[in-house]
Design a protein around this nucleic acid. Structure first.
Lengths: 366, 366
DNA sequence: GGTTAGCACTCGGGGCTTTTGAGTGCTAAT
DNA sequence: ATTAGCACTCAAAAGCCCCGAGTGCTAACC
């Protein structure tokens, strides 16, 4: 695709304008705008050239031009201005990230809804499968009678827990013993090594554990095998309606229906990115999935250590603010990587009464 | 409001029909339907009577009648048939509840999205403030270096945790000591008793704890003071679009915008219910909030012990299937109460490899 | 009395036609 | 190579008309 300098300028002007107006742009609109100072007639000639190249098209004879997917492709690859985030944007993102990432419980949902909020597009959040995940630590906390809690810490430093209720009372000494054995013999094993025979041998060694060993083992396996699959989550779907292309309720609903099916989302592109912050932009028909043929997807990868990576992405009409959104997404992904890797910096001392952390030898301020 | 028997029948017929068709219903449509066998003319007379009573109205002269909010009120209070859930409905609800309530992590969201799914209306889930909540147990789990996890068990049997990262290594013995002191002196206290002076005295007793005491204390306070406020959550907003009254995108968006603001939702009715499963139906303009003036809200309370209660509710157009939805909501609330109180019955032994629980003396099957 | 058949009247919505105007391509002049 | 001018196109908005569901009223009927 060899475009003259002027053609590039015109193409960019058309797309920029179309992105913000959502309406076919005509020759006049371009003519006086921007730096290029040409008459509308000249623009028309160039536009019709761009049309035969397949970069623009007319919805109907007497309308302005609209970019084709290939047009967007060229725009994204070569023409798009690198959008620089404003200070306000950077601050907003940082603030949102650091305040919302405190609890690592359901990271996936949190990250998703955060991204949606920060981009005003429906956002998806996909966890990379982490087949090497292991449980680094087991704790069994006795509540009362037959009630106890399994707390496991995973190698990606998240914590999962589950309340178990047995029909008969259990003994906290027994629980401690079971936990100790699991810490000694099951912790740090990959799922495939947690075999029935291993469990059986533990049961044999411990004597009658009233089924506790089996329960803990199956919970461990459940968690680890969950981690083998990608998990996907979508949020902010209502942002769709902010875009005129989804004025048509039917169309919007069709897409929503597709999006709200988590299992479908898992099959989304798993681009082979090199490093965190790298991005992929998929325009309209480049999507393999039928339902997404007229939407664009921007995905970025975040990477917070071996057992913790994933994708965040946004979905919108092909007429998308690629430049700005790519910048935001990439920034979010990078910040995310950084934040997750370094963990929560300092505990939030916020609301309500709270206490200052004062280290010895430090002078109290004011 | 003294209605004749026949008027009641007619009013009910009109509303029933309007609820399912969403279109003004005329005299003919009613005439031959149902049990009442009258000519359309007679119906017309009665209808115009009902109109002067303010129970019906005409969108325009040559259209059928539509119920007014007062009309719905009468319907809900006196006319509505008690809808009996079908077996299929009951089973579906039970299945959904028991499979989704395994992890008590983010109960609020789970309950909300469950309700939305089961009713096909946008659903809200509000936690009752639990000012008496206390922490019944602290555990500090050392990860490595300066990294440790605070796990607290609350009196409502949920578990919260947080990862803390200190810039200097900590000692697991120290952590255990701190946990022990917290369990002895802070556990089971209401928030108001966790005073700075108490914390100070703990710090004094323990000597230098490298700030750990302060961190744990502020986390405890954070959690307990969170519990003082109602939390609200909404899900299934997209169900709005299934109803013709929200064909108008503007209108739908206005409502959505209101709904997606969690903080607003907290100010929703906190009806003074007596017991779990009781319901409240708020019709159109009875809502105090401007944005909800033409929607109806059904709320039901669930109640799973002292420190665990809340409201679930659904929101929809005034033309709502009150009868069926009230039945479902009430059933959901009751089941929820029951399930949460009795806790998870048996751990799920599901996916992947798993182990049978075999108690001694039991013969292995097959 | 209550009920019903009949009739004139109303008026929103669907379908059809007209008008408007933004935008084009082409040609001829610069 | 650029531009002014002009004839042409066509979607969308505006206008128009008609249809028919539904009404209220009146007069007849039981």
């Amino acid at each position: 695709m060899n475009l003259g300098e002027r053609q590039k300028r015109i193409l960019r002007a058309v797309i920029d304008r179309y992105i913000e107006s959502a309406e076919p742009v005509g020759s006049k609109a371009i003519a006086h705008s921007n730096d290029l100072n040409l008459s509308s007639a000249t623009i028309r000639n160039e536009m019709s050239e761009l049309e035969t190249l397949g970069l623009l098209e007319q919805p109907h004879t007497s309308a302005g031009r609209v970019p084709t997917p290939q047009g967007y492709r060229v725009y994204v690859n070569e023409l798009m201005q690198q959008y620089r985030l404003t200070l306000a944007e950077v601050e907003e993102i940082n603030r949102a990230l650091s305040s919302r990432l405190r609890q690592l419980d359901n990271l996936l949902e949190n990250i998703g809804s955060l991204t949606a909020r920060l981009t005003s597009y429906p956002a998806l959040s996909v966890s990379a499968p982490t087949p090497d995940l292991s449980i680094v630590r087991f704790d069994l906390i006795h509540v009362d009678a037959g009630l106890f809690i399994i707390v496991v810490m995973l190698s990606n430093k998240t914590v999962k827990n589950k309340l178990v209720n047995l029909p008969h009372p259990v003994d906290s000494v027994l629980l401690a013993k079971v936990a100790a054995v699991f810490n000694a013999h099951v912790a740090n094993l990959p799922e495939s090594d947690i075999t029935p025979s291993l469990i059986a041998s533990i049961e044999r060694a411990l004597g009658d554990t009233q089924g506790i060993v089996a329960i803990v083992a199956s919970y461990a396996i459940e968690i680890l095998s969950d981690a083998k699959h990608r998990e996907a989550h979508i949020s902010g779907t209502t942002h769709l309606f902010e875009h005129p292309e989804y004025r048509d309720i039917e169309k919007a609903q069709r897409l929503m229906r597709y999006l709200s099916d988590d299992t479908e989302l898992k099959h989304l592109p798993s681009p082979d990115f090199e490093d965190a912050g790298s991005m992929k932009i998929i325009i309209g028909p480049e999507n393999l999935v039928e339902e997404l043929k007229d939407t664009s997807v921007i995905v970025a990868r975040y990477d917070a250590g071996d057992d913790m990576q994933g994708l965040i992405g946004i979905i919108g009409p092909t007429r998308m603010d690629y430049s700005r959104m790519a910048a935001r997404l990439s920034f979010i992904a990078q910040s995310l990587s950084r934040l997750l890797r370094q963990e929560t910096p300092h505990p939030m001392l916020g609301r309500g009464q709270n206490f200052r952390i004062r280290r010895p030898g430090q002078t109290p301020d004011r």
